[in-house]
Every structure is written in C-alpha cells, then in structure tokens.
Design a protein around this nucleic acid. Sequence first.
DNA 1: CCAGACGTTGTT
DNA 2: GTCTGG
DNA 3: CCAGACGTTGTT
DNA 4: GTCTGG
Length: 226
Amino acid sequence: MCGRYTIVVSMEELMLRYLNEQPTDRYHTPKYNVAPMQNVTAVIHDGEKNKLGELRWGLVPSWASDDKIGSKMINARAETILEKASFKNLIRRKRAIIPADGFYEWKQLGSKKQPMRITMKDGAIFSMAALYDTWLAPDGRKLSTCTIITTTPNSLMADIHDRMPVILSPEDEALWLNRANDDVERLTALLRPYSADLMRAYPVSPIVGNVKNDTPECIEEQILLF
DNA sequence: CCAGACGTTGTT
DNA sequence: GTCTGG
DNA sequence: CCAGACGTTGTT
DNA sequence: GTCTGG
C-alpha cells in the first residue's frame, strides 16, 4: 500500500514541474515523512490549467456523516475502484495527482519490519494517482480530502510488499487530470504498476515509523537491520 | 421496500 | 449519494 | 503506514 | 485486539 511518502523538493520545483510557470513567493517546506490525516500538496486541473493546492490525506466522501471515516480511506484499490460506492463516482470528475519524490513501505521479515524508501533512479518527482472529494461539515466548513490509488507490485516492489501506489508516467498526467475526460476505460487503463526499471529501493532508519520524525535522517540510507 | 454500509492492509 | 443485503 | 490509546466520575 | 490520530 502506500501509507507514507516524501516530497523534499521546493515549491519552486513543484511549480515548474506541474504548472509550467515561474514560481511565486510561496515556499514549500521539505517533507520527509508525509502521513495520512495531514494536508498534502496535490495537483488538480481547474478546466483551464493545473493548480497546486492542499488536500487532507484520507478520503471523506461528500455523503459522510462525520469525518472519522477519513483515517480508514487512505488508499483505493485500482482493481475494485469501479465497484466501490465511495470511489466509483469520483473516477469521472475528481481525479488528482499527489507529487512525491519517494514513498515508504515496511518489509516484513519474520516478526520485524524493515522500512524501505522507494524513489525514481534519477531522483525525479513522480505523480501518484489520487481521487478527491469535498465534504461539508455540520458547521458549514468545507473539507477537501484525497485517497491514493494502489495496485499490484512490480518486480522491484514484490520483494518488499504486495501493494504499491499507482504512479502515472509523465505523458499520462494530462489525460488523468483532464476534467473533460470521462472515458472510464481509458482512465482505469492508467492504473497499473510503474516500470521497475525506473525505480530503486533502499533501507532507511526505523525512526520513520513515528510521524513526529520529519527530518533528513528519514531518507538516509541505512544498513539493513535484519 | 428499508437499513446499513460505504475501505485497505496484514495476519491467521 | 449509491449500493448491498435482507 | 505506525504509534499510541483504549474510561468515567467528581472535584478543582 | 482494535480504533484513532498523525
């Protein structure tokens, strides 16, 4: 699955990568340990252009009676996305991209868990496929939330875990974000494992387990624990 | 028809 | 809101 | 995903 | 064991 990730690059780099425009004054703090229930930087298309904004990770569907459900809805399985009441209608009009430069998975070794960080070999920013929705709180406030889509592992990931986030290749990003596109078949065809050849994995410190730790040490390569 | 769920992961 | 189960 | 809590009553 | 919070 995908329950933690990193986005260490500057807002400047994100703007250049997704908006194709020169950065403004905003500054994006490097994130070494992004966790569910936090606000994350996302890309959506407003009909004219890409926009960067914040979504809380953990989907709260528009019909939910309270927002507690969000902590459970951090991932959506690509294989069943069209069958689930919570997701099937979002695929048409509520698609987003969550930019990342790494994600974490915990490899189970007997009773121990070894955290691993997975990145692109060239260190590039990549796009995780996500869905979002907006929930209206009883007090009238709007809460926009998201869920990251998962799929089966590629050959690199299979050794670590049985799920991985859906990563869109750069040439598929526009198709995914385009609001006018409601071709569900074409959209779901994008939800497949990314090429293992372009990725690498390395062990990191167990300090990444605690969400309070959001420091460069989280992404430092470590000797395998076990 | 109404009531109740609506999710994924991992582990056994 | 929409689907499933009874 | 992992870490950490998991509860009520009454009193201040 | 299971749920909540981050």
